[in-house]
């Protein structure tokens, strides 16, 4: 296998009788920006789970910097430099905001972002000593993003980062991602079309477990077939 940055080959995933992903190929480079869209249940989260090693695909291989990650324990994969924001915020509720960020940093060998800059970035400077359990849903989303950044990844996967955010926050998130993208590769899964438009990235449309279309967002948006399966219905 060539030593490209991230490469998924012929990925298939089935849960019992349910084929959720079939025959998916993906190759992205360092500091690239990719958006994945698709209707509910299309398999987006499952694909991220496969890319981050949470799930082992039933077919195909995922390789990061030339190393196959299937079967590696989760923490080893994380230490390769892959971070993930989960769809459902899963912060540590018994720890404070700043402790959450610390735990995220201690998990990786490198520490690129100072604590204060991170807090600033996610807008939680005033809430640094608040317990995770007491945060509002939007704040949890931000903290989740902050934790993913804090672990200084070279590849960042974001599962619906703007769910539950105001339009202003959504725009801020897109700006933040552009800023981060100068240093690291980002894959964002999102429903919110205005957000994906703001990202203006290479976009993949996942439909019924396959890549249905692929290209710059402007093209995707103009595509009638995509509108039919996805955009048109929303």
């Amino acid at each position: 296998m060539s030593s490209s940055f991230l490469r998924a080959e012929k990925i298939g995933m089935r849960f019992g009788g349910l084929q959720v992903l079939s025959d998916i190929d993906l190759e992205i480079g360092e500091r690239s920006l990719t958006a994945i869209i698709g209707p509910n249940g299309a398999g987006k989260s499952t694909f991220l789970n496969v890319l981050t090693g949470v799930l082992r695909p039933t077919e195909g291989v995922v390789a990061f910097r030339g190393q196959a990650i299937g079967g590696l324990p989760l923490h080893r994969i994380a230490r390769l430099g892959i971070a993930r924001k989960f769809q459902i915020p899963s912060i540590f509720s018994s720890l404070t905001v700043v402790e959450n960020l610390q735990v995220a940093r201690w998990g990786s060998a490198r520490t690129e972002w100072p604590e204060d800059e991170l807090l600033e970035m996610i807008g939680l400077r005033d809430r640094r000593s608040v317990q995770g359990a007491e945060l509002a849903h939007g704040e949890k989303q931000w903290l989740e993003i902050g934790m993913a950044i804090a672990s200084s990844p070279t590849l960042l996967l974001l599962d619906e980062p703007t769910a539950g955010m105001t339009p202003q926050e959504t725009a801020d998130t897109a700006a933040l991602i552009h800023r981060l993208n100068k240093k690291l590769a980002v894959i964002a899964v999102e429903h919110d079309i205005s957000f994906v438009r703001a990202l203006g990235a290479d976009t993949l449309v996942l439909h019924q477990g396959r890549f249905f279309r692929q290209g710059p967002f402007a093209e995707i948006e103009a595509d009638e077939a995509v509108r039919d399966v996805y955009l048109g219905r929303r």
Partner: peptide, 15 residues
């Protein structure tokens, strides 16, 4: 504490 809160999340952060 993080591990006892949510072990999978802690592992996904490299612990």
């Amino acid at each position: 504490t993080a591990i006892s809160d949510n072990e999978m999340r802690a592992a996904a952060l490299g612990h």
